[in-house]
Design a protein around this nucleic acid. Structure first.
Lengths: 329, 329
DNA sequence: TTGAAAGCGTTACCAA
DNA sequence: TTGGTAACGCTTTCAA
């Protein structure tokens, strides 16, 4: 592949001159410019950005780490942040970890070798190892979805405590008395811990019955289904269920259906996320709208400021949500 | 940020020696090795991959260009190809074009500057300009979703003609006589042209009534809804509709519902893709399963072979599909 | 208006 | 077993 050197030779000028022409600098005679441009055409010269990056010590690269891209939260998020980065002329190096938490750390290190200017990390949990890796990172890291502010890692999160609190109030207002929670791994602070805690706070404050159950499963429809099925047997008195995500909630709706129960009548169901699925399923799912695209955009914007060396002004951004009332509550 | 040079100085050895230690080459005295490792720790040395890439003339980078990531086809595809590239130690530079076709070309050029080793392009249409840009690319390009084999661009596609043909047969077998097609932009050969053409061929072969209508819209539920609504007025005799995608089909189901018609009874509906939505909506959507994850994996694998300099053995891979029978047909 | 040379951080070859 | 040096492809400074 042709280099500046080849072009220079063909045009009969020096590399410096070719460089000047390529970069539209002035102070080059028109005749030389044309001569050079012709040579560029002829050899099919394409700038070597790697060399340029090395010379300039800037890569214009940002790293994005996600557990997987085919989830509502991350897909929307990646589109959101791509847009912002694109406008800022940054390019996205994407790593999909296939749910393998160890890889998050490997990618943080890899991205540092690649000299990315910043990293957006969609985490599902946060432990000592991860915190350490982030602190070791030369490139600034911003966390999305989990709260790392305790460790001074700037974070974009959703208001998971309040969403649980709201869920409790919505279920109680709908007349529920025996309320349970279907969550995910308890290492997931945002999705499992905060949301259930908010729910419990609401029950306490309203002096309702304490939480009937809190079960742990996966982020899938199938998992929601099988959990709800088991829970129905153990807790037939259940009349309200708050599910940590919409997909889990849809599984729960199906389990109720199979048991001859209509979600929204005998048992109220509430999800989180406002996944497209929730509008389409039957009965349609009452939920909370989480602005995943805005989360991505915010993360990108905050990271850009950090990259530009602006002082870090916030320790976290907590995004709000909207109640979405449909048929199941 | 510390470089080999700094480490060398601190350890009191030459850069060459440090390089040898870093890269685990043998022929280094144990004592020196330890001395160097200590220095590495001390200055927090991190390899500069940019310099390494320049020196070795290899970036281990592949570019992936998508119209957007938050669609079933691309999200699944990106996860699939990420997995394969990850195993092959390649890293993914992702560009989300926000449906702006001009950007596809810009990104092909940008990626060449960045010296990616190959490019996966999810295209929504294919024109002279795009073909030209691909032919100019030094990095091999593989197309997903559209057939570029006519221009000698290796392509991974779904069997869009046959899916239309099958759709025709399924609708006819279900007793439909007045069949229409709801498509997308007619510049989209794969999704609009091929699928409708297959449908027409089935109608012809079975000597059924010719296609009642062929309308053009967007890839959204809303668009499917508004089109179906209009078409119902113009063609009240319709008893079967093949929709170019599942989302469009779901919009159509809702439009029928609003008109007091049950999809699957008076009017049969068929979609394409087996989007998760199709299993969850009511009535549930009969469709065709497209293996988007496999498409991504295939693309990655084919590209890897090209990168490794293996001869190009195929001009396209046509993936098959499965009929998914649910309630609407 | 142009060119020569140094240097970005590596590796690889040759010499010591 | 180690070190010096050139080279990867570019930009930038200084001199001509």
């Amino acid at each position: 592949m042709a280099s500046l050197h080849d072009v220079a030779q063909l045009a009969g000028v020096s590399k410096s001159t070719v460089s000047r022409v390529i970069n539209d600098e002035y102070g080059v005679k028109k005749a030389t410019r044309i001569k050079v441009m012709k040579a560029v055409e002829e050899v099919g010269y394409v700038v070597n950005q790697v060399a340029k990056d090395l010379k300039s010590q800037r890569t214009h690269l940002v790293g994005v780490i996600v557990p997987r891209v085919s989830s509502h939260a991350t897909a929307q998020g990646v589109d959101g942040l791509s847009k912002v980065f694109d406008e800022a002329q940054k390019h996205v190096l994407l790593a999909s970890c296939q749910q393998n938490a160890q890889k998050e750390i490997e990618y943080i290190q890899l991205f540092n070798k690649k000299r990315v200017e910043g990293i957006v990390l969609y985490a599902t949990h946060i432990d000592q190892q991860l915190v350490h890796a982030i602190q070791q990172s030369y490139a600034p890291v911003i966390l999305v979805g989990q709260d790392g502010s305790l460790f001074n890692i700037p974070s974009i999160i959703h208001d998971d405590l309040r969403v649980g609190f709201e869920a409790g109030n919505r279920l109680l207002n709908a007349g529920c008395r025996q309320i349970g929670f279907i969550g995910v791994a308890d290492s997931d602070v945002a999705v499992d811990k905060m949301r259930s805690e908010g729910l419990q706070q609401a029950l306490q404050m309203r002096q309702a019955e304490p939480l009937l159950f809190h079960s742990h499963g996966e982020f899938t429809i199938e998992s929601g289904y099988s959990q709800m099925k088991q829970l129905l047997e153990r807790f037939p008195q259940t009349d309200g269920v708050f599910c940590a995500t919409d997909r889990i909630a849809i599984g729960a709706i199906n389990a109720l259906k199979d048991a001859g129960i209509t979600a929204g009548k005998e048992v109220k169901i509430l999800g989180v996320g406002n996944d497209e699925l929730s509008a389409v399923c039957a009965p349609s799912l009452s939920t909370f709208n989480y602005a995943f695209d805005k989360a991505g955009e915010s993360a990108a914007r905050v990271l850009l400021e950090l990259i530009e060396g602006k002082p870090q002004v916030m320790s976290k951004v907590v995004l709000t949500f909207q109640n979405i009332d449909r048929e199941t509550c």
